[in-house]
């Protein structure tokens, strides 16, 4: 992977928004005083559509809701764990419930998915957001694995008149997808590699880790990137998975708590697909360990070596 191709998802996302804001006067950005280099241009050029509510996530969601009620396209931009969990009841009442009665285009853009704020410790780790947001009706949930997807999701977001949660990694990541890649966001996933026997299913940054791991595997192992939990074409996902005997899920989230592994186990069970599932992720604890992301992955048994081992020794049938 060429490091020159690396970029943060937020800069890619905000870059698209900046371009869109020049032609689309409906777009507002509401932030809880959280910045980004790409946001500086927006702040300078669109003063009347950039709203800093201060460190007040509940109000960020409520103000964004009010703007959307009036037909604007609102982006509530902040740190993933705080935008989702500090304001969860605002999201539930004013977006999830309200969007059942009227369209509301509020996009919660959370930076710092999973363990991307590795050194900041458990307050900044975000291991619950996928579970919490996919629980709520009427909200789309995106978890891109590279910056090209983040940019595509930004493009789509202003045209789809519904609340969305978009979780972005905080660190620069290489691209996984070519510009011409036939990726359909509404399908929810993409098969990055076809394999035989075993398949890794990952989301967000863990798709990057899984791809690096599988590059070292002699055996052909499949790799599915789940970049959207809603929308998700479950029929197509099932068809992609049914050719494998073993599935390994990898996520920067708690194991067995409604995240990626729960999604896959549920799909396979509902469709009667007999594949075994082995789930890699964070056990039933928070991570106070100080160290970089690779160390945290190793401690949790979800680093490249652990992925390779899980593929080689899948769960018993």
């Amino acid at each position: 992977m060429n490091p020159a191709d690396s970029k943060t998802m937020r800069d890619a996302f905000l870059g698209q928004l900046y371009a869109a804001m020049r032609e689309d006067g409906r777009i507002f950005i509401v932030t809880d005083d959280f910045g980004a280099p790409a946001l500086d241009k927006i702040r300078a050029e669109f003063k009347d559509r950039f709203v800093n509510v201060g460190i007040a996530e509940q109000n960020a969601i409520n103000v964004a809701t009010g703007l959307a009620i009036e037909g604007f396209v609102a982006y509530a931009y902040g740190i993933a764990g705080f935008m989702t969990m500090r304001s969860y009841e605002q999201v539930r009442t004013n977006l999830s419930m309200a969007a059942q009665l009227r369209p509301l285009n509020v996009n919660i853009v959370g930076v710092g998915a999973g363990l991307s704020y590795d050194l900041s410790g458990p307050s900044h780790h975000c291991l619950e957001d996928i579970t919490l947001m996919r629980l709520l009706p009427n909200i789309e949930v995106f978890s891109p694995s590279d910056w090209t997807l983040a940019a595509r999701i930004a493009d789509r977001s202003r045209h789809v008149n519904a609340p969305k949660y978009i979780r972005l990694d905080s660190k620069p990541v290489p691209r996984l997808y070519d510009d011409g890649a036939a990726v359909h966001l509404d399908t929810g996933f993409h098969e990055l590699a076809q394999g035989a026997g075993a398949c890794v299913v990952a989301t967000g940054y863990m798709t990057q880790v899984a791809q690096r791991a599988l590059a070292q595997s002699a055996a052909p192992v499949g790799l599915l990137d789940i970049f959207s939990f809603k929308p998700l074409d479950e029929d197509r996902l099932c068809r992609a998975l049914e050719k494998y005997r073993h599935v390994v899920t990898v996520e920067e989230g708690f194991i067995g708590r409604g995240g990626l592994d729960t999604l896959i186990v549920g799909v396979l069970a509902r469709r009667g697909v007999p594949a075994t599932v082995r789930a890699l992720g964070v056990d039933d604890r928070y991570l106070y360990d100080v160290g970089n992301r690779a160390l945290l992955h190793r401690l949790c048994g979800m680093d490249e070596a652990a992925i390779l081992q899980a593929v080689a020794q899948p769960a018993p049938a």
Partner: peptide
């Protein structure tokens, strides 16, 4: 506790319009 915050967003929107 939600109404005033949502109203702030609506008020901003009305000014913008």
């Amino acid at each position: 506790g939600h109404g005033l915050g949502v109203a702030c967003g609506i008020a901003l929107a009305l000014k913008q319009k």
